[in-house]
């Protein structure tokens, strides 16, 4: 079947198997390998991406279900000149990543947390990220990064592609 999806601001049309997961579509069809797959039970959140403004676990969405949607992955966050998104910058400054495997999903989920609540407490960040697992950081610096990003202003809770789509 055919799907038309805007991925990181780029309009794409692809022929896919009906059962193809969005996570595999992004990795194998689009070649966007930042999105990782860490489990097979929608538990770990490593595959989190933003679909039409909402952070979702792309292992639990079919590519077919994303037909007509706008999808943003980690690769779509930095500015054209390479300027880091406020959430990326905060993760670096606060040492919010170690092995990096949970990071793409964690960053996308964290943007979602701030979209819902622009200035969360530690506890609210922890609850907002409960569905995203990290084995390296003990979440300590991830919580700090999200709170630091919140101080950077509303852009920390937004993905850049929402405004402009290149056909």
């Amino acid at each position: 079947m055919q799907v038309s999806i805007v991925v990181n601001g780029e309009q794409r049309t692809d022929e896919v198997e009906p059962r193809l997961l969005l996570a595999h579509y992004l990795r194998e069809v689009c070649g966007l390998k930042a999105t990782n797959i860490g489990c097979d039970s929608t538990s770990c959140g490593a595959c989190t991406v933003v679909v039409d403004g909402l952070s979702v676990k792309s292992c639990t969405v079919l590519a077919a279900q994303a037909d007509g949607a706008q999808v943003t992955t980690l690769e779509g966050l930095a500015g054209p000149d390479g300027e880091l998104h406020p959430m990326q910058a905060a993760f670096r400054a606060e040492h919010g990543l170690q092995c990096g495997f949970c990071t793409p999903g964690m960053v996308m989920a964290a943007i979602g947390v701030l979209a819902d609540n622009p200035d969360p407490t530690d506890r609210e960040v922890r609850e907002g990220l409960e569905g995203n697992l990290c084995r390296c950081t003990g979440y300590h610096n991830i919580v700090r990064a999200v709170r630091a990003a919140a101080q950077a202003g509303p852009a920390a809770g937004q993905v850049p592609q929402a405004q402009e789509v290149q056909a």
Partner: peptide, 21 residues
């Protein structure tokens, strides 16, 4: 010192074994 690894990890992702092309 903040990590030199991170800009790549945070923009394109690390390259794990299953990511190899």
């Amino acid at each position: 010192v903040v990590r030199t690894e991170d800009p790549l990890f945070l923009t394109r992702g690390a390259t794990y074994t299953d990511d190899l092309t």
